[in-house]
């Protein structure tokens, strides 16, 4: 399973390196989302600094949707998904490989977005361990849920509209918990310092549910739908 996961992740990242769709299209889009948040809040510096964690995670979710769609669009062309099904690769390995590839792409987008939040919203980074741990586990959760639902909609005529409808409510706990954990890490929260780690625990539960659910059901999804 792990070997198959590495193969699939390497394949997806190789396609991204050659096509640079995420870098050339998704990253500018995510930065535009941050700018639009600035317009929506009327350049209120204190309000933007307060809301920065939530705006950051909303931008990540907005960027995650096209990343997931792109990950399955490359499988839809030329019957690639059928070839993958017949390749004998472990479905759980395919799932984990796709999750790993999307997670790595989202890390790059997030690194650029963090720069955007610091420059545009005047946020001061703090609470390194909680900030980093939350970012890693939330990104894996977004990617895990995205791949699980992306596999469902890959062959459908209405996949472009169906995926956001399926995924947005599912990612609500990630936006909520990751925002609260970041607020705690950045010292913006009025709750106790341990509150941030409590939210982190919830994110671990969410990510665990989607990674376990994806590993268990991905084979059924790609073979029977």
């Amino acid at each position: 399973m792990w070997h198959d996961a590495l193969l699939v992740a390497a394949k997806d990242l190789r396609i991204e390196r050659r096509s640079r769709v995420s870098l050339n299209q998704v990253v500018p889009y995510a930065l535009m989302v941050l700018l639009l948040f600035g317009f929506a809040f009327d350049q209120d510096r204190s309000l933007l600094a307060q809301a920065a964690p939530g705006l950051f995670w909303l931008a990540v979710v907005f960027a995650g949707l096209p990343a997931v769609q792109r990950s399955f669009a490359i499988e839809a062309a030329d019957g690639a998904s059928d070839n993958m099904r017949m390749s004998g690769l472990d479905p759980a390995g395919i799932f984990l490989g796709k999750v790993a590839a999307i997670t790595l792409q989202l890390f790059v987008i997030e690194a650029i977005l963090v720069g955007g939040v610091v420059v545009l919203f005047h946020s001061r980074l703090a609470g390194g361990a909680l900030l980093a741990a939350t970012t890693v586990i939330s990104t894996a959760g977004v990617a895990g849920a995205g791949v699980a639902y992306g596999a469902l909609s890959v062959g459908l005529r209405v996949r472009e509209t169906l995926l956001p409808l399926l995924l947005a409510p599912v990612l609500a706990p990630v936006v909520l918990a990751a925002t609260q954990a970041w607020r705690s890490a950045l010292g913006l929260s009025t709750t106790s310092p341990g509150g941030g780690w409590r939210w982190f625990g919830l994110l671990v539960a969410f990510t665990g549910v989607y990674l376990a659910g994806g590993v268990l059901t991905f084979g059924t999804l790609i073979e029977e739908t």
Partner: peptide, 26 residues
């Protein structure tokens, strides 16, 4: 295919509701 996809989604949604319950309560 409809039965497979919708059954998986129903289960994943039920699990999400449990996480959501804790998130919104806290």
């Amino acid at each position: 295919a409809r039965s497979v996809a919708s059954s998986v989604v129903a289960l994943l949604m039920a699990l999400t509701v449990v996480v959501d319950h804790y998130a919104t309560s806290w």
